[in-house]
Design a protein around this nucleic acid. Structure first.
Lengths: 196, 196
DNA sequence: TTCACTAATTATCTTTTGTTAATCTCTACA
DNA sequence: TGTAGAGATTAACAAAAGATAATTAGTGAA
């Protein structure tokens, strides 16, 4: 069940979340468990839904012209995942969102979330906070593409996500870095030989 | 002076901005003109300020280990520019923000803007809208790095920013795409020869 | 334990990019 | 009119990445 420790983790989502706020949100949310490999959202989906990942790991991926899956995003426990296409662009999802581990989520309908926030000004500040954090992340990621080489980008990724490196196949990490798995393998070898 | 036509352009910033809202903002903002080459914000700056670009063009750039300027962002008239480091990360600016054309801005202190928005719930929706649009842009840009080759990325950039292509030196565009100016020149040649 | 399957590495070759420097173009201005 | 300076292109070479395929390693299920 949900314990206090866990609720504290949810606090991290915002700065001034009270127990009451969390309760209110949890009432509206449904808890759900998914085995590895489940699609939370598929291409073409339109249902506005937001997932708080209580436990587990989810990847977003697109399929390119050649039919290859390209992973664009990884999200783990205590993070939020949703289709930016559906929520921000008001269009059907262009990505798949798939669990990479047994995953537990609280999921909540986006419009319902909106109305809860509207009735509860305190939560509004929270939404702002969450949005800002997502924006921070994405801005940093853009800088890493513009300012760093693939090799530097990988080193940077490992430093920033030491846990993910051991939970996720390298081929997904390669995608995230904008390179091929073969190239990442060579980069890893290069780094290893430099260390000696 | 400021005319109705121009105010309508500011409307684009939000969905439900009224004349009164715009007036309120304009009262708090200072209009200022800068010649080409002016630094609106320099590395190390801490002043929380937001610029609405009324006319002109601004680039953000960092300086890498080798001492090269790397342009990471371009913003033009009717767009907003601010230091994400100062506003989002609460740290001194790590980039320079420099005008590339004679530029007119409305600039407003960020904390003052915050308080105006706090007193004016309608504006809050607007801020949300602006934030979402910036997030949209950055997410799309990340996708272009992950899913497209440099050549495809350039084609994509030209299609999305036909006006900028003729206003900005190619070397800045190359930076934005994460490649060198030399490489961009080759890509352009390659594309031109394909067209025949 | 073995088999099947997937991921990772390695090899080979092609293509592209980075780097550095030279050349060409264009424009502002003395 | 001529000249300095910046940007763009080109050249030449080295380094890295992409593509494809073969091999190796690792894992889970029968």
């Amino acid at each position: 069940m949900i314990n206090l420790e866990e609720i504290k983790k949810m606090y991290k989502l915002g700065r001034n979340l009270t127990l009451l706020d969390v309760q209110k949100l949890l009432q509206a949310a449904r808890m759900k468990s998914f085995p590895t490999g489940t699609f939370l959202i598929s291409e073409g989906a339109v249902k506005k839904e937001i997932f708080f990942i209580r436990k587990g790991l989810v990847r977003a991926f697109a399929i390119n012209d050649k039919g290859d899956e390209i992973t664009t995003l990884l999200r783990k426990e205590n993070q939020i995942i949703a289709s930016s296409d559906i929520i921000l662009f008001d269009q059907p999802a262009q990505f798949y969102y798939q669990t990479l581990e047994p995953t537990q989520t609280f999921q909540i309908d986006y419009e319902l979330l909106q109305s809860i926030i509207a009735e509860n000004p305190k939560l509004e500040a929270n939404r702002k906070f969450i949005f800002q954090n997502i924006l921070k992340e994405t801005l940093k990621r853009i800088d890493s593409f513009v300012l760093l080489s693939p090799e530097e980008r990988y080193i940077h990724f490992v430093r920033s996500n030491p846990d993910l490196v051991n939970r996720v196949p390298n081929k997904y990490i390669a995608n995230i870095l904008g390179i091929t798995p073969v190239s990442l393998s060579r980069i890893r070898k290069r780094i290893a030989s430099k260390k000696k």
